[in-house]
Design a protein around this nucleic acid. Sequence first.
DNA 1: GGAAGCTCTTGTCATAGGACAAGAATCCGG
DNA 2: CCGGATTCTTGTCCTATGACAAGAGCTTCC
Lengths: 194, 194
Amino acid sequence: MTDTPHFLHRIFSPDRFSREQLQQILPQYTRVTFSKHDYLLKEGRTAQHYWFVEHGFVRSYAVDTGGNDISTNFYTTGNIVIDWPSFFLRHPTRENIQALTDCSCWQIGYERFQQLFHSIEPYREQGRTTLVGSYFELKNRSISMITDPARDRYRKLLEEKPHILQNVSLKQIATYLGITDTSLSRIRKELAKE
Amino acid sequence: MTDTPHFLHRIFSPDRFSREQLQQILPQYTRVTFSKHDYLLKEGRTAQHYWFVEHGFVRSYAVDTGGNDISTNFYTTGNIVIDWPSFFLRHPTRENIQALTDCSCWQIGYERFQQLFHSIEPYREQGRTTLVGSYFELKNRSISMITDPARDRYRKLLEEKPHILQNVSLKQIATYLGITDTSLSRIRKELAKE
DNA sequence: GGAAGCTCTTGTCATAGGACAAGAATCCGG
DNA sequence: CCGGATTCTTGTCCTATGACAAGAGCTTCC
């Protein structure tokens, strides 16, 4: 029926899933596109879907009490875009998820996810692994926030996500690093000297 | 065979699990005790178990490049003590988990967990919920680290885990908050004035 | 194609928190 | 129950970063 879409094989590898399993899984995902500045998820709503990014850049951010927004993550090709707590605990989110560029993504909803999760063992193994991987990343970032000075955190970000810089404003990078755009500008000036 | 232990009903509620399911689940957990200062997990090892605390206090911490240790969490009665990435991704951990007091816990190993996870639907639902809950907590803490001043983070900790203060040194609390013990001491002095 | 916004840089000044050191208080372990 | 080790506080001085403001260079969009 639905032709197995090429991109999703990057996520669901034939090494880990049988042909029949892939035939169950892939058709549950639908291709959706977002225009630059579109919201995938808005504060106060409950996440009904999650996405794998095929093309484009996405940012998630939280708004603090002072009305400033704090970048919490950046996403691009191959990444999963999901608000774990909102999607799984079924409660309204505190975050916003917004397309930084035009994007194309593969989307699945909660019910269909649940169905696959409970019926296909390697699907739930992979899902759990992905979640634990996000947890691990977040924890490393938290520790880095305490132990590393801003300059090092910036350098690390550049190494790990060099393509980010091309698509994200310095203001947005700064809040991700936990500093102001002013400080980031000075840090960049420093680093440029070297 | 094994009498259903009372404490674990606090974790696995008869509302969510059938009697037969509980009969499968509970015997897989064994009661273990730790003496003050014992390690539940040491840096470099791979987590083979996780625990539910019945009595006592536990702390996890990471050691940074400068050799300073940074508290990452505190645990007490009813909490799950688990290094998610190490336990599930089966890789060596960067953290240490240590008993702050004598403790009694309920322990399960990886193989037995897997068996229950893949065979009992509400067990994996609950497991996933617990993991997502940890993720949520960690994310809120990360955001708070960026948006809230140390004083507020300390106040919040006191509200949320008042019993901690009785069992943890200020040094250990300070690193959890991302500040030095000196600063924490001054913050406490300030707050005492009010 | 120009007015209105952005983004980024830079300057000045303010401040939270760090580094280091020393003393007081408290907690062990033999 | 003593002596050494911690823990906690406090002082002085220092540094990274923030707050605010202004200007330069862009987008953008009617």
